[in-house]
């Protein structure tokens, strides 16, 4: 092969092929963008409080311990489905109270157990964050995770 393939042929294949795959990737990206906006997520319920909750999530770098839809630090539980795990689909108020109580009770200081810091979130911030979890739990993730353990 090394005799038949010349350097200029290799160069042309590189540039041509790369251009082809960039165009293909952009086309699929456009479709994926539209699919997210129109199909897999519910933009009509993407309220101010959900957006504020996303910022609470970011400001406290939750992703550097937890994972969200499987991406993050794997040090603490998956939270993409935490709303479902707390029974939010059937008992929204109970789940909300449970999540707030849990975050307020941190750190547990139990020896040998991973510790979550106390982030001192306000009532408003807690509500926004939980709205964000609730909205996230309704993203169509092709059936992932396999069970509520996350």
């Amino acid at each position: 092969m090394s005799e038949r393939l010349t350097k200029s042929a290799a160069r042309n294949i590189f540039y041509g092929g790369t251009a082809f795959f960039i165009v293909l990737f952009i086309a699929l990206s456009v479709h994926t963008h539209l699919y997210i906006v129109n199909t897999s997520t519910d933009e009509t319920t993407l309220t101010e409080s959900v957006t504020r909750g996303k910022h609470v999530w970011e400001r406290n770098a939750c992703i550097n311990c937890h994972s969200l839809l499987g991406e993050g630090a794997y040090f603490a539980p998956e939270l993409g489905n935490v709303w479902v795990r707390y029974g939010g689909r059937d008992h929204a108020e109970g789940a909300r109270m449970g999540l707030k109580a849990w975050m307020r009770a941190q750190p547990t200081r139990v020896p040998g157990r991973r510790q979550m810091p106390q982030f001192n979130l306000s009532e408003q911030e807690l509500d926004d964050l939980i709205d964000f979890f609730e909205w996230t739990s309704r993203i169509d993730t092709q059936g992932w995770p396999p069970n509520t353990a996350g």
Binding site: T18, T32, L69, I139
Partner: peptide, 24 residues
Amino acid sequence: YVIVGLALFSGLLGTGHHYYWIGT
């Protein structure tokens, strides 16, 4: 050229392996 070609031909659409479960 051959190597970087292989890298981009596979790597660009390889982004797909991150697009399984995030609403894509």
